[in-house]
Design a protein around this nucleic acid. Structure first.
Lengths: 120, 120
DNA sequence: TAATAATATTATTATACAATTATATACCAA
DNA sequence: TTGGTATATAATTGTATAATAATATTATTA
């Protein structure tokens, strides 16, 4: 689960509006266009970003595309990120070096940083 | 609750690392600096963004600052955003025009968009 | 098959963001 | 009160992102 990509996709006003509308109901691009009163390329490009983050799905219907919200992913990313924060550091891939450096800090705070009185 | 600001703050790799470390324990800037092995201004600037989003708090301790994670906000933003998605459109401030345009679409699909056969 | 509709993609431009370097501020200790 | 430590801010540069305008692609229909 790529938190950075998903939160980045969520962190933009136009995309939040699109997500909210798709939460209401699945829509064609042209419907989003009229409802949001925004240009078609603008909508399409934001939909592309949301799709890459797996936040929406699309289905071809002739010449149209119906976009729908992937609510499960939103639920999952929230619960998994909460779990990620609660997980012990030493068991997290991607934090090996950080965990090592924290251990070194715990053992010998003077050497690494905060030269004066290493205890808070 | 400013979803855009909060999700944007969450959507960056360095900040995710900082958040994870602060979830482990509150830390000084200089500790984050050594643990993440990143420059001090880089850390400080990301902390500033996180603080503006209310994701972290800081407390002065002499010349140092202890930063700690605001876990409640993370929990709140997740649950409130889920609620936001489930909320009926008509009761949402900021979606008045969109709601109106959707109603118009429902009444007369031909006029607004998707010229050919307005039903999916 | 020509014309149009719906969507996607590309090019361009302007703005936002991240990282670095340099500097400033505040606190502490000798 | 001088020197050093911890943090913050400012200036700069490079990259990423968003919006628009223009074009391409695909499906539909006349």
């Amino acid at each position: 689960m790529n938190y950075e990509m998903i939160f980045k996709a969520l962190g933009e006003y136009t995309r939040i509006k699109i997500i909210k509308l798709l939460a209401y109901k699945a829509m064609y691009v042209c419907e989003l266009e009229s409802v949001l009163n925004m240009s078609q390329p603008r909508i399409s490009q934001h939909l592309k970003i949301l799709k890459h983050a797996n936040l929406v799905r699309d289905e071809k219907e002739g010449q149209r595309s119906v976009y729908s919200l992937n609510k499960e992913l939103i639920h999952d990313v929230f619960s998994q990120f909460t779990g990620f924060l609660d997980m012990p550091l030493e068991s997290l891939s991607g934090f090996e070096q950080e965990y090592e450096r924290i251990q070194r800090l715990n053992n010998d705070p003077e050497v690494i940083c905060c030269k004066n009185s290493g205890d808070k």
